[in-house]
């Protein structure tokens, strides 16, 4: 059972100075699971994701990726991780090909495999005819696709996507959702979004964050069985908390 667990975070906290951005997050994901992170602006979703990918050190708590401790053994753990940050990390004056080759090398893909991986990834993300374009000249949506391609080029076990469908056209949103679903078969995916229907259509489990803590955690199938409306839950939990706070 534990061998199938790809990412395990226990009591993770993060403070910025005296401000508590994330407080006591627990998270466990199995291979083949897609987790949707919801929450109002400033809830701490991006902060959590940056901690899970080793970009930010937690103030307390432990994180394991495929059984490897991220904090004491970061390089090995990061081999299993793919990350699309909120702002895609793109070099404006590289071409799409140059950029993806660099990303592949960074993730230690063997040189003889790179060509084949590159073709595969461009096809999956709809970038075939953009190979030689400078990233800086691509539209927002295509830049987002390059960002996604970078995160999955090395077929990581854990894929973390911060608002992956922002800026995409409706066709591409459908494509990317399909892609995430596919990725979710072989790996674990964590994605954050503000589109509730997206969670319902592609995630296996949903967590709602508010003010740095998880206030709701349920499997989508259960949610559907109970015929509860995600939007109602979201409004109740998040607005309720904020209102209570204001009183």
């Amino acid at each position: 059972m534990t061998s199938a667990t790809t990412i395990l975070a226990q009591n993770v906290c993060r403070n910025y100075g005296s401000y508590v951005a994330v407080c006591n997050i627990n998270l466990e994901l199995k291979r083949g699971e897609v987790l949707g992170l919801l929450g109002p602006n400033g809830a701490g979703k991006s902060t959590t994701m940056r901690m899970l990918t080793g970009n930010l050190a937690p103030s307390a708590g432990s994180i394991e990726v495929c059984g490897i401790d991220l904090l004491s053994n970061p390089q090995e753990a990061k081999m299993h991780l793919g990350f699309l940050p909120e702002i895609p990390p793109l070099y404006q004056d590289m071409t799409v090909d140059e950029y993806l080759v660099f990303a592949a090398r960074l993730h230690r893909i063997d040189t003889y495999e790179i060509g084949q991986k590159l073709d595969g990834i461009k096809q999956r993300c709809g970038l075939e005819d953009r190979s030689r374009h400078l990233i800086g000249t691509l539209s927002k949506g295509f830049q987002q696709r390059v960002g996604i391609a970078q995160a999955i080029i090395h077929s990581p076990d854990v894929i973390i996507l911060d608002e992956p469908t922002v800026g995409l056209d409706p066709n591409q949103i459908r494509e990317i959702r399909k892609l995430i679903r596919e990725l979710g078969n072989s790996s674990s995916v964590i994605l954050s979004t503000h589109i509730l229907s997206e969670v319902e259509s592609i995630c296996d489990r949903v967590q709602i964050m508010c003010k740095g803590s998880v206030v709701f955690d349920q499997a989508i199938t259960e949610l559907k069985q109970q015929e509860t409306n995600l939007e109602m839950i979201f409004t109740q939990l998040t607005q309720g908390l904020i209102k209570r706070d204001e009183d």
């Binding site: 990918t53 080793g54 970061p74 390089q75 793919g82 940050p85 990390p89 960074l106």
Partner: peptide
Amino acid sequence: RYHTLTLLMSAPIS
């Protein structure tokens, strides 16, 4: 400035 440091920091490189 262009947030590409994240790419390097997320990769298995010290």
